[in-house]
Deep mutational scan, measured.
Amino acid sequence: KRVEVKPYVLDDQMCDECQGARCGGKFAPFFCANVTCLQYYCEFCWANIHSRAGREFHKPLVK
């Protein structure tokens, strides 16, 4: 058996893009583990950032 640990998915993290400004101060539910991102995102910022060319295939890690 093999266990994969993702220590970078933490609870209670603010969106790295808007710092809570676009999501009413809620914590960010998404983390993008792609090396070009490596950031936490609220729903609004995830949709906005990941609609751009080259990022549309990134998969979010959801808390």
Rank of each mutant, 00 (worst) to 15 (best):
L38F: 09
R55W: 13
E4R: 03
G25T: 09
Q39F: 03
Q13Y: 06
F27W: 07
G54D: 13
V5Y: 07
V9K: 12
E43R: 08
K1C: 05
K59T: 11
C32H: 00
P29H: 06
F44C: 13
P29S: 12
I49Y: 13
V62D: 07
N48Q: 11
I49M: 06
E4I: 05
G25H: 06
M14L: 07
R52I: 13
W46H: 04
Q13L: 05
P60Y: 03
F44P: 14
S51C: 13
V3C: 00
C32D: 02
P29D: 09
G20R: 02
R52E: 14
K63Q: 10
R55H: 08
K6E: 10
F57I: 08
K6D: 13
A47W: 08
L61A: 14
C32G: 01
A33I: 11
K1S: 03
R55I: 15
I49D: 06
R2T: 08
G20H: 03
F44D: 08
Y41H: 01
E17R: 10
D16K: 13
C42H: 01
T36M: 09
A47P: 07
H58V: 01
D11P: 07
K59L: 06
K1D: 12
Y40A: 07
H58T: 02
E17M: 06
Y40S: 07
T36F: 04
L10H: 06
N48L: 12
G54S: 12
Q39W: 01
E4T: 08
K26P: 02
Y8C: 08
V3G: 09
H50V: 00
P29Q: 14
R2V: 06
E43M: 04
V35S: 12
S51H: 10
Q19I: 03
V5T: 12
C18Q: 01
H50Q: 01
Q39Y: 04
D11F: 07
C18F: 00
S51D: 15
T36C: 06
N34G: 08
L38K: 15
Y8K: 15
F30C: 04
L38E: 14
K59D: 08
Y41K: 02
P29I: 05
P29N: 12
D12S: 07
D12T: 07
A28T: 04
F27E: 09
A21F: 05
G24T: 04
V35H: 11
F44G: 12
N48K: 15
C23H: 06
G24E: 12
L10K: 14
G25M: 08
I49V: 12
G25Y: 07
R22S: 11
M14S: 14
G20S: 04
F30W: 13
A33N: 12
F57G: 15
A47C: 04
F27V: 11
E43F: 05
P7H: 09
V5F: 09
F44S: 12
P29L: 05
G24S: 10
K1M: 06
G24K: 10
R2E: 14
L10A: 15
R55K: 14
L61Y: 06
Q39N: 08
D11H: 08
Y41A: 01
Q39M: 14
Q13G: 03
G54A: 03
D16Y: 15
A33F: 04
G25F: 08
G24Y: 09
D11M: 05
F57P: 11
N34R: 06
R55Q: 10
G24N: 15
V5S: 15
P60I: 02
K1R: 06
A33C: 07
L61D: 13
G54H: 08
D16T: 15
R22N: 11
L10N: 12
A21K: 14
K63L: 04
M14C: 08
N48V: 12
Y41R: 01
R2H: 04
C23K: 06
C42M: 00
K59C: 06
C45Y: 00
Y41M: 10
V9L: 10
C42K: 00
L38M: 15
V5N: 13
Y40K: 06
C42D: 02
Q13V: 09
F27K: 14
F57K: 15
F30H: 14
D11K: 10
F27Y: 06
E4N: 07
N48E: 14
D11V: 10
F30S: 06
Q19N: 03
C15N: 02
H58P: 02
E56T: 07
C32T: 01
F31A: 02
Y8V: 09
A53H: 13
F30Y: 12
Y40R: 08
D16Q: 15
L61S: 15
L61C: 14
R55P: 03
C18M: 00
I49G: 05
M14F: 10
H50K: 01
F44V: 13
T36L: 08
G20N: 03
Y41V: 02
W46A: 03
S51F: 05
A21P: 02
E17F: 03
Y8R: 14
K1A: 04
R22I: 05
A47E: 12
W46Y: 07
C42F: 01
F44K: 10
C23S: 10
W46P: 02
R2P: 12
A21V: 09
A28I: 04
G20W: 01
P7V: 01
R52C: 09
C37P: 03
C23E: 07
V35Y: 04
G54Y: 07
D11L: 05
H58M: 01
C32Q: 01
F57Q: 15
V35G: 14
K6T: 10
G25K: 12
P7D: 15
G25R: 09
R52M: 14
Q13E: 04
L38T: 10
A47L: 07
K26A: 11
C42A: 02
Y40P: 01
C18G: 01
R52D: 15
A53F: 10
C23W: 03
G54P: 12
C18D: 00
V5I: 08
C32V: 01
P60R: 10
A33L: 04
R52V: 14
C18W: 00
R2M: 11
P7A: 06
C32P: 01
S51M: 13
F30Q: 12
N34H: 03
C42L: 00
A47Y: 08
F31I: 02
R22E: 06
G25S: 07
Q13N: 08
E17C: 12
A21L: 06
W46C: 03
C37F: 00
K26S: 09
K63E: 12
K63S: 11
N48F: 10
G20Q: 02
R55G: 07
A53C: 09
H50W: 01
K6I: 04
F27P: 12
Q19H: 08
G20L: 00
L10Y: 06
G24A: 10
Y41P: 01
Y8L: 11
Q13I: 06
A53W: 05
K6M: 11
F57Y: 11
F57H: 13
A21C: 03
C32Y: 00
K59G: 05
G24P: 06
S51W: 05
S51E: 14
L10I: 10
V5K: 08
F31N: 02
Q39R: 15
E4H: 04
N34W: 06
K6Q: 09
C45I: 00
E17K: 08
H58L: 01
Q13D: 04
E4W: 03
L38G: 12
Q13R: 12
E43T: 07
K1Q: 05
A28K: 09
I49P: 03
I49S: 11
C37E: 01
H50I: 00
V5R: 12
E56M: 07
A28N: 03
A53I: 09
Q13W: 04
L38H: 13
A21H: 05
F27S: 11
V3E: 14
F30N: 09
E4Y: 05
C37Y: 01
Y8F: 10
F31T: 02
G54L: 07
G54T: 08
F30I: 07
C15Y: 02
G24W: 05
H58G: 02
C32N: 01
F57C: 14
K26G: 09
V3I: 10
P7S: 10
R22P: 03
I49N: 06
K1T: 11
V35E: 14
N48Y: 08
T36Y: 07
F30L: 11
K59P: 05
K6C: 09
F31E: 05
F44E: 13
C23G: 10
R52Y: 09
V62R: 15
C45R: 00
E43Q: 08
P60L: 02
Y40H: 09
V5P: 15
G20T: 02
C15G: 02
M14N: 14
K6F: 04
D12N: 11
F27M: 11
A21Q: 07
Y40I: 02
F44I: 11
F31R: 04
F30T: 06
V35W: 05
Q13A: 11
Q13H: 09
V3A: 14
S51R: 15
C18S: 01
N34P: 00
R2L: 04
H58D: 01
F30G: 02
Q19C: 06
P60C: 07
E4K: 05
A28D: 03
T36E: 15
Y41C: 04
F30V: 06
Q19L: 14
G20E: 03
